[in-house]
């Protein structure tokens, strides 16, 4: 009489990732380093976001052999990315038994109008959001975990901060509204009323909220936690830095001890060069912002 693939099991796994760091990896060696450094999960992808940015072209789901090799190499949960709307990539990853799927703007979208119907899957999904309305639309589609989009591959935290503040601020605003105003607010947010009501009552999203997009230093990781994120995704920030293993450990430590400046300071020492950062305005001028993918 046991049940599988329930929403409680999906959000439950995200609950167990809280306070932790999920690291982008492109091969089994990186996955081992991530696990050794204290990552609570790894995200398998073809190229880290900063390389996707540099190389251009179409970015797709990672090679399945690589994902399988990563699953073989580590005992922590393995996540993998699919293109927005590419439900067959998701079917394939479910078949491979990845632990979580990220329907991600970092890859080239496969559908310009529709996200995946995530309620139709047993495997849990995480999706990016830039504001509360977007987060609630993803939850309505079945996402069991939300992350800020930030601006992946830039090593610049400013967009993740903007998105976290928009989501957390949006939740506070909903809580302050009288019940009769929730319907029109749902319309403004372009999200279903039931989901909006649930957030107003709970005072938080009905699923865990993590930060992604631009974390490069232990201080960045602590900043996002202090702003309300319940855990961190780190992409290029680790394997594009001078000393990935030390930086990974430091970001893990700063995520746990985010509110203890002494610990964050200690974790920040002796890490060598961080990844090179990108100015958002320059990318925007080039039309190169990934966060505008998805709706």
């Amino acid at each position: 009489m046991s049940e599988q693939g329930t929403f409680r099991l999906k959000t439950g796994l995200a609950e167990m990732l809280k306070g932790g760091v999920i690291m982008d990896v492109t091969n089994r060696d990186q996955a081992k380093i991530a696990e050794e450094s204290g990552a609570c999960a790894v995200m398998a992808l073809e190229r880290v976001p900063s390389d996707i940015r540099r190389d251009g072209g179409v970015a797709r789901m990672a090679n399945l052999e690589v994902i399988a090799a990563i699953q073989e190499a580590v005992t922590i949960p393995v996540m993998a990315k699919v293109r927005i709307g590419h439900f067959v990539e998701a079917q394939v990853l479910q078949n491979l038994e990845v632990d979580y799927i990220d329907e991600s703007e970092v890859l080239t979208p496969a559908d310009e109008a529709h996200h995946i119907d995530k309620l139709g899957f047993d495997v849990p999904f995480v999706c990016g959001a830039t504001n509360l309305g977007e987060a609630l639309r993803r939850i309505a589609e079945g996402a069991a975990m939300i992350r800020s989009k930030g601006e992946a591959g830039t090593g610049n935290i400013v967009e993740a901060v903007r998105h976290l503040r928009a989501i957390v601020g949006g939740i506070k605003r909903l809580q302050s509204l009288p019940a009769e105003e929730l319907a029109s607010e749902a319309k403004n947010l372009q999200a279903p009323l039931e989901v909006v009501r649930a957030v107003a009552e709970l005072g938080w999203l009905s699923v865990p909220l993590f930060c992604a997009g631009g974390i490069a230093t232990p201080a960045d990781a602590a900043l996002t936690i202090q702003l309300g994120a319940e855990g961190n995704f780190v992409g290029s920030g680790i394997f594009k830095s001078a000393d990935p293993e030390r930086r990974a450990k430091a970001i893990v430590e700063a995520t746990t001890h985010a509110r203890d400046p002494e610990r964050v300071a200690a974790a920040s020492m002796g890490l060598g060069e961080a990844m090179r950062g990108e100015e958002i305005a320059t990318l925007a001028a080039e039309g190169a912002l990934l966060q505008n993918r998805g709706w």
Binding site: E3, Q4, T75, P77, E97, D122, V123
Partner: peptide, 15 residues
């Protein structure tokens, strides 16, 4: 024994 039932796909609820 860690992850003894398998991956997330094998996670379950029971009474």
């Amino acid at each position: 024994v860690r992850n003894a039932y398998g991956r997330q796909a094998q996670s379950f609820e029971v009474e």
